[in-house]
Structure formats: C-alpha cells, structure tokens
Simulated scan of single mutants.
Amino acid sequence: MSEPDADANSVLGKVQRILEAFGPDEEHLSLSELSRRSGVAKASVHRLAQELVRWGVLERRGADYWLGMRLFEIGQRVPRQRILRDAARPYMEDLYHATGETVHLAVLDGMEVLYLEKVSGHHQVKKPSRIAGRMPLHCTATGKVLLAFGSRALVDEVVASPLERMTPRTVATPGLLLQELARARETGYAVEHEQTRIGYLSVAVPLLGATGTTAGALSVTAPLVRGDVPKFAGLLGMVARRITATLASD
C-alpha cells in the first residue's frame, strides 16, 4: 500500500481507502480484508461501512461487502464520460461488425488509460479487459495514441518513470517509446504487438473533441493470426472522423 497522504486519516480519506481496497478482480471483501487492504482500523471500517451501505455505495451480502449500484449511478453522470461514450458507442458497434474484433474506447486519467466502453463478441480477448479498467500508457495502443497526440509534459513524465514490462515484448526504454510515439504522429495511429498480452495486437487512433484537443482513443484488439493492421487503421480512422463530427455538432 502507498504511503498515506496528509488527509488519509480524515473521514473522507478513510472512505477513499476503503472503496479503493476493491481491486478489479475482487468483487467482494470481508470486513477483515477491507481493514487489511485499506489500513483502516477494523472498528472504523465497520462503522464507515455501515454508513456506506445506508448510502448505497456499498452492499452487504452475508459477511462480505460489495461495491454498490449507487457508485455506478453517480459514475454515469460524469459529463466527459457520458458525452464521449454516447457519441462513440454506435460507431463502435459498426466497427465491431466490420472487424469481428474487440473495440475499446479509452481516455487519459492521470498516467493511465481508463476504459470507458467496450464492444466484443463471445470470442473475446483472453484475460479480457473491462469497462472502468486501467492500463499503463507506455505499452497499450490507446495509451501510445494518447501520449503521441497529447501534451509534451505528459510524455516527459512517462519517460522519466519506470516503464513496467508486462511481456517480453513490452517497450521498456524511453528511446524506443519515443520512436513509437513519433511513428504514431506520422501515421495517425499507434500499434502494439504483444506488449500487453502474448498473441494479440492492438491498433488505436485519437478521438478529437469539439475544440480539436484529444478527447480519447479508440482501438481494435485481435489475435495476431487475425490482426490486419492496415485494415484496422483505415476503419478506425473513418470511424474516428465520424465520432469527431458528432462531438462537434453536440
């Protein structure tokens, strides 16, 4: 667990730590596990969890706690997420039907990729991604596009940080990452081959908002045996232009 900040022992700080104790693969946690993961005393977790259950932010089933639907309802009200997702979703479905592969919509959040929406079929990516999931910027196609068409300050911050190696093919040196970003700016799209999952590739393009700044990224992920980079890049570029027009008209 990271070192708590100055506000970590406030009520809101404790609530934040309790909610963030739920990882992407933990649907439910016991009171003891919540206390251990959050670093908050068990008695405090019990008291705050009772309040959170009353608010609907947590749900209790037997001895375990689950994240509540109230969080989902509030999340749907985030303007950037709702506007971008609503504009992109119909075109993502078109893209899925044209390729038969998994389509992701992602935005930048801090120094990570945050996935807002996903369209896939029954034969989806092994170890599937999930909506509201996060991934590193330096090794995902969506992350590379957000870096390539984002601010120089963000690029400098990323290359100055340790670049986690997720597979043997992950780009983990600043020089190689900068080369990939330059190539993405030149071609208009980014590609990653087996940098996050062995056996898969992804192609991504930037999505421009009404002001012309990069609002998000759209990608297609497929097994290498079906990965047609030129086809995916062409379809993504066409769809991205339509989404940008939709955003500009809203």
Rank of each mutant, 00 (worst) to 15 (best):
E194I: 05
T214Q: 13
G23Y: 01
V191C: 08
F22I: 04
R152P: 00
E112Q: 14
L52W: 02
E59R: 10
R197E: 12
S120I: 00
R241F: 03
A160V: 08
H104Q: 09
R17A: 13
N9Y: 10
P223M: 07
S44K: 00
V225S: 09
I83S: 10
F72M: 08
M238H: 10
M238I: 03
G133L: 05
T140C: 09
K118L: 15
K126A: 04
P174A: 14
G75C: 02
R242K: 13
L12Y: 07
M1D: 02
L48V: 09
G39K: 13
G133T: 08
G212H: 06
L31Y: 11
G216T: 00
P79V: 11
I131R: 15
L147Q: 06
T214A: 14
E59A: 09
E93S: 07
H122S: 12
E157Y: 04
P24D: 01
G237T: 12
I131C: 02
G188E: 06
D94A: 02
W55C: 02
E59L: 04
P79R: 15
E164L: 13
Q16Y: 06
L176V: 00
Q179G: 05
A204I: 12
P4N: 10
S30P: 01
A204R: 06
G100L: 10
G56L: 02
K144M: 06
L178R: 13
E186I: 02
K127A: 01
E194W: 04
T196V: 15
P206M: 07
M69Y: 00
A43L: 09
V239L: 03
I74V: 15
G121M: 04
D25R: 15
R80G: 12
L95T: 07
E27R: 14
I18H: 02
F72Q: 07
L114Q: 05
P206L: 04
A248M: 08
L108M: 11
G68L: 06
L208K: 05
L208E: 11
A245P: 00
A210K: 07
A160R: 14
L29T: 06
E164M: 14
G100N: 10
L236R: 09
Q179C: 09
D109K: 13
V125Y: 01
M69I: 03
L247P: 05
G234H: 10
C139G: 02
L224K: 10
M166I: 06
L116G: 10
M111S: 06
G62N: 11
R47A: 11
G121I: 04
G23R: 13
I83M: 11
A141Q: 04
V158F: 10
F22K: 01
A49L: 07
L48Q: 09
R185Q: 15
Y91D: 03
V203T: 14
E33W: 08
L114E: 08
L58T: 04
E180N: 14
L108I: 12
G39E: 03
D5T: 14
A245C: 06
A63R: 15
H97S: 08
V15D: 01
D7T: 05
E186T: 02
V203Q: 07
P223T: 13
V125D: 00
A222V: 03
A215D: 12
